[in-house]
């Protein structure tokens, strides 16, 4: 929308809500009975001393899809990367507060980030296959982790779980860069599944894909929910509404010195976030009035 267009508030709302209602059945309301996979407690993450997200606290539940939504620069990705210590790779990043994975403090000094990432896999915004064959892309993780078992069957099983086997079984030895963008992203998901993780973190996995590829990945996520817990960052609100069980809505707070800090406005069942949010800022965002 350009500055010249009149603000259009009707279509966004109409497009999102019915789909959200259609696709997702309401999540169980008894939150206490559900098993937590992560407990995020008063987490503040800063880069070079500037807070990117502040005072984040909410649980993430097992075998569910949790969506993180909100405007650009609100720290969704920063928080996601804190869940498998990917922020360790950025020298200026600092995580305060506690992130518990089951009941282990992920930032305890005894915790090895390499072990964390074995259990908590990640799929990135842009498909990032290695410049190797399809087979070697999948086999990379099992090989570096020294996983036992027949590599051919590990690769086949991962590609089947990634809903890619039938498309690539005849060209496993060809370079992964010969695949379409959607196939590459499913390869990256299959690659993450090959090391048998517990959780998969997805950072806007469909932002570079066309609607058909996006649909296939959403179907795949729906299947994966049975065995994995998924946390997804997305800019696409329909996507959050279609696939997720729980949604956290982030916003950006402008500080006096023009600093931008992300905060969680509301965290609730996806259906509630998209139909009857309790905060007016959430409503404005999910109905397309802002953002």
């Amino acid at each position: 929308m350009t500055d010249l267009d009149p603000p259009d508030t009707s279509t966004g709302h109409a497009a999102i809500t019915p789909r959200a209602l259609q696709v997702r059945e309401p999540a169980p309301t008894d939150l206490a009975s559900r098993e937590r996979i992560f407990s995020i407690e008063d987490v503040t993450i800063s880069y070079s001393g500037k807070a990117a997200v502040r005072d984040i606290a909410f649980p993430i539940y097992k075998n569910e899809i949790t969506a993180l939504i909100g405007p650009s620069g609100c720290g969704k990705t920063t928080l996601l990367r804190a869940l498998n210590r990917m922020n360790d790779l950025i020298p200026t990043a600092k995580v305060e507060g506690k992130v518990f994975y089951h009941d282990i403090d992920l930032y305890d000094s005894a915790v090895d980030p390499v072990q964390v990432r074995k259990r908590i896999g990640m799929v990135f915004q842009k498909p990032n296959p290695f410049p190797k064959s399809i087979y070697d892309n999948i086999a990379f993780g099992p090989r570096v982790l020294g996983m036992k078992g027949d590599m051919d069957s590990i690769v086949e099983s991962a590609l089947r779980k990634g809903a890619l086997w039938d498309e690539v079984k005849d060209r496993l030895k060809t370079n992964a860069f010969g695949m379409s963008g959607g196939q590459q992203q499913r390869l990256c998901i299959a690659r993450a599944l090959a090391i048998e993780p517990d959780v998969i973190l997805m950072d806007e996995p469909c932002s570079a894909l066309d609607p058909i590829s996006t649909g296939r990945i959403e179907d795949l996520m729906d299947e994966l929910r049975a065995d994995y817990s998924i946390v997804i960052v997305t800019h696409n609100m329909q996507q959050a509404a279609r696939v997720s069980d729980m949604t956290a809505f982030f916003t950006v707070e402008l500080g006096q010195d023009d600093s931008r800090t992300g905060r969680v406005v509301e965290y609730d069942a996806t259906e509630k976030i998209f139909t009857s949010p309790s905060d007016p800022r959430t409503e404005a965002y999910v109905t397309g009035k802002v953002g």
């Binding site: 790779l89 390499v114 842009k126 296959p129 290695f130 990379f140 570096v144 993450a192």
Partner: peptide, 23 residues
Amino acid sequence: SLREGAYGLGASKLQVSLRIVFP
């Protein structure tokens, strides 16, 4: 992004250097 992909699969620094970056 290639390094991150490998780190995300539980690769160590040496493995990322020798098996991803070097080739």
